[in-house]
């Protein structure tokens, strides 16, 4: 059976975030390079139909971060959830380059693992790490995201049937009722219990109680899927599976997964975008903290390296003056 391949997060940073960082660096942080908590968000995966070729094009598995990242709560668009992260801004490019990134990463993953083990906390599952250096005079921002994910050994495998459209497994009334409850209260991870033509939702923390007396074929674990690729569920599922294996090993030899990708109920004639699949994994050692991966690769070179956002064309007053005729 093929190994499940997860679509990694990518990081669109809104220019507002850099503007806000510039302001914070000058007015608030000054010379401090203490780690802070920032908030981003991700929404259901989106795809667009190209009008010339008729193909569906998936639009990246995005965790975006905007100008309100430093505030306690971020403004969320419908069908999106917030994700918090550790943010560290370095004072010099040398500090940025020389930083012990492995140690920073380990610190974050240890904290995550700790709250997963001790607090059964699902809110830490989509944590990220962001390190930056802001060259304020040149309007250049060096940054590197990491989206930690615990590596499962042995790896999760997808059943022979593969990933299929959710409406092949659930009928549209059941899907609509899931949509309704997610629309009212959008959560990153949830449980679904199918009862007749409706489906009841529960929280992942209470899996044992929620699934008590429910036959295995009616149990579904769902998550808000930022990926739009047919065969690749999004990154958050990785940590969710690690969480399930740790806390509910008895129930997770085989898990029925719903990748929720519909922001609205499809109009008649169109199909649901959500995907469904059954993943399974052999027993593994769940007690020790697994290794973690997740540094974002550079999109053009596909190497592990930092990126730079050059905002001079949009921020440098002299460059803007040239533009304005």
């Amino acid at each position: 059976m093929p190994v499940v391949q997860f679509a990694p997060f990518s990081s669109p940073v809104q220019p507002n975030f850099w503007h806000e960082l510039t302001r914070m660096k000058i007015d608030v942080f000054r010379l401090s390079d203490e780690a802070l908590t920032v908030n981003g968000s991700y929404s259901v995966g989106r795809s667009i139909r190209d009008r010339e070729t008729g193909q569906d094009i998936a639009l990246g598995c995005n965790l975006s971060i905007g100008g309100d990242a430093y505030e306690k709560t971020v403004q969320l668009s419908p069908m999106s959830v917030s994700a918090s992260g550790t943010f560290k801004n370095f004072n010099t490019i040398e500090d940025f380059k020389g930083a012990d990134k492995a140690a920073l990463f380990n610190e974050v993953t240890s904290k995550m693992w700790d709250s997963i083990v001790n607090h059964k906390d699902t809110s830490v599952l989509s944590q990220f790490l962001l390190i930056t250096f802001a060259d304020l005079k040149k309007y250049q921002y060096y940054y590197w995201f990491a989206f930690p994910a615990f590596v499962s050994k042995p790896a999760w495998e997808i059943s022979e049937n593969g990933w299929k459209a959710a409406d092949e497994e659930l009928n549209s009334a059941q899907l609509a009722s899931i949509h309704q409850s997610l629309h009212a209260n959008t959560v990153p991870f949830f449980l679904v219990k199918v009862v007749g033509n409706t489906s009841e939702m529960g929280s992942v923390e209470k899996l044992d109680e929620f699934f008590a007396n429910v036959p295995p074929e009616s149990r579904i674990v769902g998550f808000l899927d930022p990926s739009a690729l047919a065969e690749n569920p999004g990154w958050p599922l990785r940590n969710l599976l690690a969480y399930l294996r740790l806390h509910f090993p008895a129930q997770t030899s085989s898990v029925r997964i719903l990748c929720w990708r519909d922001s609205e109920v499809p109009s008649p004639g169109k199909s649901w975008k959500s995907r469904f699949g059954v993943v399974s994994s052999a027993e593994g050692d769940s007690a020790t903290k697994p290794a973690a991966v997740g540094w974002e690769r550079h999109p053009t070179t596909n190497k592990l390296s930092a990126r730079v956002a050059d905002l001079a064309p949009m921020m440098d007053p002299t460059r803007l003056a040239d533009q304005a005729v």
Partner: peptide, 22 residues
């Protein structure tokens, strides 16, 4: 290389008919 990470290029199946933007 992490085997469970979808490659940005080439890891896309054609069955779903959805293309990766990259």
């Amino acid at each position: 290389d992490d085997e469970a990470t979808a490659a940005p290029k080439g890891g896309v199946s054609s069955s779903g008919g959805v293309l990766d933007a990259t």
